[in-house]
Design a protein around this nucleic acid. Structure first.
Length: 316
DNA sequence: AGCATTTGACCAAG
DNA sequence: CTTGGTCAAATGCT
């Protein structure tokens, strides 16, 4: 995934995607006031429009920053932003840059672990195309895939246990995708997790599905955490599980907040798949959206912008 | 009852 | 021998 994400051949497309997302971002920003001056809107509609636009803008902003960070020429940031996920290629001893990145983030114990890894990362002759990558995220349990936990270990030199997951469909589809989640020791809020993925999903169930635009994003198209994050910002505007006041005060989309209230090993494991206990992936209600467009002309703009946004991600 | 998670034991690489 | 990764029986949840 990260390999495709960073492929030089895609540089032009990346630039174009960044420009396109930036354009949509600017247009949403400019047109946002239009939604607020329609006096015939109900106050709840105004709040919903405001909330949705705000979330969309935030998601676009995050997407842009991540896209720009993934440019091939400049060295990627060694300190990932707390509020977004950053994907870095991992465990490729023949890649000096990737190795340098890992040196910056890995403890001696972690480096040792990588050398002695007996996973499929370095098996066989395929030693140049690593199937392992690292993702720094605040939402390690919501990456668009379904995982089953199969182990937990206390790792030397870390304050938190490491949880091991494999694809839920390993038995059904023979999917060999695995990941392990390690909370970083930093005292940042929300806490940052290092998620190390091994092997791409080979199961059909592993596809990221964005029902809003009926887009299916293959893993290499967009980092899962980012896709979920962007998608979460476009969640059903009529599904108000939080009062508007709380929505205003919440600095992060639901998908970017701590799952199920904490990162302790005893609580995280109950919330490891997309169908978490605290917030299922929202399903955008198209009937509601259509009705909203009908009743509120401003939603035409919103709909158009979000369509463009999804097209941008689809293209990307 | 069936499924997912927990957790101690085991395996293998360094 | 140490330790990261995996296994599988026990346990918990729905």
């Amino acid at each position: 995934m990260a390999a495709a994400w960073c492929m030089p051949a895609a540089a032009d497309e990346r630039e174009r995607a960044v420009a396109e997302v930036a354009q949509v971002y600017e247009r949403i920003k400019i047109q946002q006031p239009l939604l607020q001056v329609h006096h015939h809107y109900s106050s709840s509609h105004q709040q919903l429009a405001q909330s949705l636009l705000s979330d969309a803008l935030r998601a676009l902003n995050v997407a842009l920053s991540v896209m720009k960070q993934q440019r091939p020429s400049p060295a990627p940031a060694t300190t990932p932003p707390v509020t977004s996920s950053v994907v870095v290629k991992a465990e490729s001893p023949r890649s000096p840059s990737a190795s340098a990145d890992n040196e910056a983030i890995a403890t001696p114990t972690e480096r040792r672990a990588k050398k002695r890894s007996r996973s499929s990362v370095m098996e066989g002759n395929n030693k140049t195309s690593s199937s392992s990558w690292v993702d720094f995220t605040t939402v390690p349990y919501e990456d668009g895939y379904e995982w089953r936990k199969y182990g937990e270990k206390k790792i030397n030199g870390t304050s938190y246990t490491r949880s091991y997951f494999r694809c839920t469909y390993k038995d059904d589809a023979g999917c060999l995708a695995t990941k392990h989640v390690q909370q970083k020791d930093s005292s940042s809020d929300p806490p940052v997790f290092q998620v190390t993925y091994n092997n791409k999903h080979t199961c059909n169930n592993g596809k990221l599905i964005l029902p809003f635009m009926n887009i299916k994003l293959e893993p290499p198209v967009l980092p899962p955490a980012l896709a979920v994050q962007a998608y979460s910002a476009l969640h059903d505007p009529f599904d108000q599980t939080m009062p508007p006041s709380q929505q205003e005060s919440s600095s992060l989309p639901v998908s970017m907040q701590q799952p199920c209230g904490g990162a302790t090993s005893s609580t995280t494991s109950s919330c490891i798949s997309g169908e978490s206990c605290c917030d299922e992936y929202p399903v955008l209600n198209m009937a509601h959206m259509a009705a909203a467009v009908e009743a509120s002309p401003g939603y035409d703009l919103l709909y158009e912008e979000l369509s463009l946004l999804c097209d941008s991600f689809k293209f990307y």
